[in-house]
Amino acid sequence: MTQSPPTESVAVELEKLRGTMETGFARVDGALALLVQRGDQTDRQLADHDQRLDNLERSRWPLPSIAALVAVLGLTLSVWQFAHR
Score class of each variant (00 low, 15 high):
V36W: 08
R38H: 05
L34S: 08
V28T: 08
L17V: 09
V28P: 00
T42E: 07
A26T: 06
D43L: 05
A26M: 00
A11H: 04
E15P: 02
R38W: 07
S9F: 11
V28D: 08
T42F: 04
Q37H: 08
G19P: 00
T42M: 00
M21W: 12
L34N: 14
Q37N: 14
F25Y: 08
R38E: 13
A26P: 00
L17M: 08
L46S: 04
K16Q: 13
M21C: 09
M21V: 10
L32A: 07
L35Q: 15
Q41G: 00
A31W: 01
K16G: 04
A33H: 05
R38A: 15
G30F: 02
T20N: 14
L35I: 13
Q41S: 09
G24Y: 05
G19L: 09
V10H: 01
M21I: 10
V36H: 07
E15T: 09
A26Y: 02
L14V: 05
L34A: 15
L14P: 07
E15N: 06
L32P: 00
A26H: 01
F25A: 12
E8G: 05
L46V: 01
E13I: 14
L32T: 01
A11C: 06
L34D: 15
Q41A: 03
L14G: 11
R18Q: 07
G24H: 12
D40Y: 06
A11K: 06
E22I: 05
L17I: 12
R27P: 03
L14K: 03
T20W: 09
A31K: 02
R44H: 05
T23F: 05
T42D: 10
S9Q: 11
A11I: 13
K16F: 11
R38C: 06
V12T: 14
L35F: 14
L34F: 11
T20P: 06
R18D: 13
L32Q: 07
E8D: 13
D29F: 01
L46H: 00
L32W: 08
S9V: 12
T23S: 09
E8Y: 03
A31F: 01
E22L: 07
A33D: 05
E22V: 03
V12N: 14
L46I: 03
R44A: 07
V12A: 14
T20H: 13
K16C: 09
A33P: 00
S9W: 11
R18T: 10
A33R: 01
T20I: 10
R38I: 09
G19I: 03
L46P: 00
Q37V: 12
Q41K: 05
A11W: 08
L46T: 01
E8L: 03
L46R: 02
A26L: 02
E13Y: 06
R44M: 03
Q45H: 11
G39Q: 01
A11M: 06
A31C: 04
L34K: 12
L35N: 14
D43N: 00
M21K: 15
D29A: 07
A47C: 03
Q41W: 02
G30V: 01
F25H: 08
A47M: 02
Q45C: 03
V10T: 02
T23Q: 09
D29R: 02
Q41H: 01
A47E: 09
V28A: 11
K16P: 03
E15Y: 07
T42P: 02
V12Q: 12
R38D: 11
M21D: 15
R18H: 09
R38G: 08
A31N: 09
R44F: 06
V36Q: 14
Q41F: 02
V12K: 14
V36K: 15
E15F: 03
G30D: 02
L34M: 12
